[in-house]
Each structure stands twice: as structure tokens, then as C-alpha cells.
Amino acid sequence: MIDVFIALLLAHVVADFLAQPDAMIRRKTEPAILLLHIAMVCVLSWIALGGNWELALWVAAAHLVIDAIKTWALPENWRDSLPAFMGDQIAHFATLAAAAFLMPDAVSTGIWADHIADLRSPAILISGAIVSVWAGGYAVGLLMKPYTDQFSNDDPGPSLEGLENAGRMIGKLERGLIFLFLCVGETTATGFLIAAKSVLRFDTASKGQKAGEYVIIGTLASFGWGLASGYATLSLLEIAAASP
């Protein structure tokens, strides 16, 4: 059962965070775009399961229902919010767990059957890295959106101008490093990373209270997500190692 969940988890995070660019997310209210995303979920799940179309179609159908509810049933101002994102992902993870419970032998009867033991850890680590780096960027961005809007609406106000998309890249790098440090057992290195970023961001934070609070919230959210996803990955590795 754990192997089915790991396979479906990898397919899900690749479909939702690597194979779904911002342009597709913005146009998801268009039925054709939503169906294209669901097709990706189905194909990636089929590949991850090793050829089980029945379960891949079931997972894709559940994914369609969840995404349709978020896209068309929620008020427009709630769709692009952190609670909606977290609720959406929790619902997806619940369906993956249910699918693994209903068909626990889906992977063991597929083409990956002879390589399950070798593929478990890489699949978990790749999934964890995607959740930490890419999903974390999306979640932190949603959290920070109201504060970012304040800077663009305030006149006069503190400037946060910089290189285009540099903030996103910095966030990805810091969460990636935190994930790496946790996986190799160097937890104390995260403290040095926090200190280094604090020094580098001191100039921005010194521009005023709003800028300082903005930097603190964003940094703590990014580091918190990196730590949470890293420890969740380590826990899943332990569960997989204890499974027969």
C-alpha cells in the first residue's frame, strides 16, 4: 500500500507543480485547459503505477472533481488564497491515500514490480524536493500576496524593487538548501542559512517597518515550509523503510 501511495504522490506533485505552468493555472477556468491538466495527471499516474490504467483513471477522476470544485464552486476571491490551496492539496492527498488503500497491489503487479525496493527512496526524495521548492514557492506567494499588494498600492511607501523574479529564485534556493541539509543530517546548517539571509536582507528591512515585517514574514514562512516538508519527507522514508 505504501508503494502505491508513493507512486501516486510522485505523479501528483509532478503534474501539479512541474507540468502545470503559471499560464495554465491562470486559464484553468477554461474546460479544455482543466481537461489537459487532468490528462497529465492520468498519464503520469499510469506511468508511476507501472501500467495500471484502472487506478490511474480513478485518481484522475477524483482530481477532476476536486479541481472543478475549487475552480467553479469557490468564490473568485477565494480561489487564489492559501486556505483554498491547502484545502485542495489535502483533498488530493486524501484521495491518493484512499486509492492506495483500495488497490494496494497496483504497483506490485506493474512493470516496476522487480524494482520497488530500489525506487522507493528516490521517489520519496524527488516528491519531497518538489513539495519543498516548487509547492512551497506557490504557498508562500499566496501568503505574501496581500502584503505585496500593500506595497504596490501605498504611495509613498518603501520600495521593494529588485531583479525580476529574484525573490522567487531566492526562496527556491533557500528551501532547496534546507531540504538538502535535513536529508543529509546537517540540521544545524539551517541556522547559518537563516543568519546569512538576515545579513543579506538587512538593507531591505532597514527601509521601514513595513519592509522589515514583509521580509520577516516571507523568510519565516519559506523556512517553515522547507523544514516541514523536509521532516515530512524523512518521516515517509522511515515508514517506507519499515514496510516489507
Rank of each mutant, 00 (worst) to 15 (best):
A48R: 04
V133R: 04
V133I: 15
L234M: 09
F181Y: 12
G136H: 03
T233A: 04
M169Y: 15
T187H: 07
S152Q: 13
T219M: 14
M86C: 09
F85W: 05
P21E: 04
V215M: 10
W112E: 03
I2F: 12
R79S: 04
A73W: 13
G141R: 01
L160H: 11
I217Q: 03
F17K: 02
F85N: 01
W78G: 00
L163G: 15
V4G: 13
L193Y: 12
P244C: 00
S81V: 00
D16A: 09
R79E: 10
W53I: 11
E238D: 14
D67L: 05
A61G: 10
Y231F: 14
L160G: 14
P104R: 10
I130Y: 06
C183W: 06
I217W: 03
A135F: 06
A100T: 07
T29P: 00
A166H: 10
E76I: 01
A135Q: 13
D154M: 07
A106G: 13
G137I: 10
I90E: 05
A139H: 01
Q89F: 03
A100D: 10
S127N: 02
G212C: 12
A123Y: 01
W46D: 06
V184E: 04
I194M: 15
S229R: 00
V107D: 09
M144Q: 09
